[in-house]
Design a protein around this nucleic acid. Structure first.
Length: 461
RNA sequence: UGCCCGGUAGCUCAGUGGCAGAGCAGGUGACUGUUAAUCACUUGGUCGUAGGUUCGAUCCCUACCCGGGCAGCCA
């Protein structure tokens, strides 16, 4: 007999006989002559109510069907006599598959997110985390769909890299050397030429440079994979291991890049609204009351666009007392970004044309010589969700930038070659997948949108 | 890494320089087409760890550990 998932049973158009239900007990309520079971199998937020009559063989085992136990039920799907649900299953056979004793940590009542993080192996069985990870799965699918529909080629960037590219934060070293007794050079330093890859290697912080290589061959590409930062960040929006989507488009300037980013973000929101409707309604009810109106508002409105210079002007004239002073050439701080997205524009806003001195070597220098074609997409509540730029395609300017950043031409020879042979204007950006999930679900902590979060000091599961 | 808040029952929390508390969960019983069921009774504690002050510390002080928040770094 084939298993029927709860989601399929609940969407039934008519009664069904002899269906097999397998899942986990959420609650049991005993009446005199029968018991109610609520069974969840993760296929959707809601459970299926099951009636187990006391006359059934095996009913003597009903006491084992505690919260958290797994059960297997065959029965008839019929319209419910009760108020809370359309369908219910009248059992014709009932069996406990796996017991869960009274130490089962999930109660019928709500738990704090902090407690649930400590039981990361159990929390997917809760309503909230079931919903979060269904949305995560759906959006991963939608990401591929978005790019494949537009003829982008999916590129797998390496996880292990030799370039500590663009100085985007601290890197995790990858080595097989014995930490207690590493080989050394005559000068006493560790001799990495004897390491596994015969040089220093790291976990990647970004697939961008590799994506550029493929964009300069296949035109429109994207990466979607894990990236790693060894930053000692203790915030609700930083993780040591996170997933990033990085499209790279040949023959594309900054305007096209900003257009794509906006289209992409809206596409993902629209997809979740459509395909994860019940889960999003749950978030709107229990996580963030303003979630659904905010998402719909974001879908309806064009994102605002504003140059860095205009932003500095807005911030200077805001009349605020900034903790960090506002001046042209200084980095925008959290308080500034929050003000722009949440109070001034009250909507996602793309800032672009940043001072050259604030940005990495590969960004396209503008005609003014002072700014580069960088863009950051800021969203209310989270801040930066996308960072990107048009890339510097002129060989001489790129080399000059690298000299200013004191980068080795030798290490980046392959990257420089892209400008030497058939160079084209090209652009791309990185979207933090978990930050996007936070925005779509309203979940405020990045640790709660990753199945098993890695943050400084924590890798317990 | 800096600053701030917290750590008391399985969970969420109250509390006091002098006998350790509640709600929920768990257990027992009753009741019931129930649905975070309800009602009655009930089990449950190294008060984060180590020092110190004190006649006496869960409470005050110090250090450390753990969790969280904010900032920086970024996605």
């Amino acid at each position: 007999m084939q298993r029927t998932l709860v989601s399929h049973a609940l969407n039934a158009a008519s009664p069904m006989d002899g269906i097999l239900l397998q899942g986990w007990v959420r609650t049991r309520r005993d009446a005199k002559a029968f018991s109610f079971l609520e069974i969840n199998d993760g296929s959707c937020l809601k459970g299926l109510q099951v009636i187990v009559d006391a006359s059934l063989p095996g009913y003597d085992q009903i006491a084992r069907a505690t919260t958290g136990s797994s059960v297997e039920i065959v029965g008839r799907l019929v319209p419910s006599q009760g108020q809370g649900q359309k369908w219910e299953l009248v059992a014709t056979s009932f069996a406990v598959v796996g017991d869960a004793d009274s130490t089962y940590p999930l109660q019928k009542k709500g738990h704090t997110l902090e407690f649930l993080r400590e039981i990361a192996h159990i929390r997917p069985r809760s309503n909230l985390f079931g919903a979060v990870f269904r949305v995560r799965s759906r959006l991963a699918y939608a990401i591929h769909q978005f790019f494949q529909e537009r003829s982008f080629v999916y590129v797998h960037a390496p996880i292990i890299t030799a370039s500590d590219c663009e100085g985007a934060g601290e890197l995790f070293r990858v080595t097989t050397l014995d930490p207690k007794n590493p080989p050394t050079s005559p000068d006493g330093s560790v001799d990495f030429s004897q390491d596994f890859f015969a040089k220093k290697t790291y976990l990647t912080v970004s697939g961008q440079l590799e994506a550029e290589v493929f964009a300069c061959a296949l035109s429109n590409v994207y990466t979607f994979g894990p990236t790693f930062r060894a930053e000692n960040s203790h915030t609700s929006r930083h993780a040591s291991e996170f997933w990033m989507i990085e499209p790279e488009i040949a023959f594309c300037a900054l305007d096209g890049n900003m257009d794509l980013a906006e289209e992409f973000v809206k596409y993902l929101i629209r997809d979740a609204r459509k395909h994860c409707a019940a889960d999003l309604e749950f978030f709107g009810k229990f996580v963030d009351k303003d979630l659904l109106p905010r998402l719909d508002f974001v879908l309806e409105r064009p994102f605002q666009r504003c140059t860095y210079t205009e932003a500095i002007d807005i911030l200077s004239r805001s009349g605020r007392n900034w903790e960090h002073p506002v001046s042209w050439g200084a980095n925008l701080q959290s308080e500034h970004e929050r003000y722009l997205a949440e109070e001034h524009f009250k909507c996602p806003v793309t800032l672009y044309n940043y001072p050259r001195t604030l940005k990495p070597f590969y960004m396209r220098v503008n005609e003014d010589g002072k700014t580069v074609r960088a863009m950051d997409l800021l969203v209310p509540g989270i801040g930066e969700i996308i960072g990107g730029s048009q890339r510097e395609e002129r060989l001489d300017v790129l080399l000059e930038n690298m000299r200013q950043h004191q980068l080795s031409e030798k290490e980046y020879a392959w990257y420089i070659d892209l400008r030497r042979y058939g160079s084209v204007p090209h652009s791309g950006f990185g979207l933090g997948f978990e930050r996007m999930l936070m925005f779509v679900t309203g979940v405020a902590n990045i640790r709660d949108v990753i199945p098993f979060a890695r943050t400084p000091g924590t890798a317990g599961f």
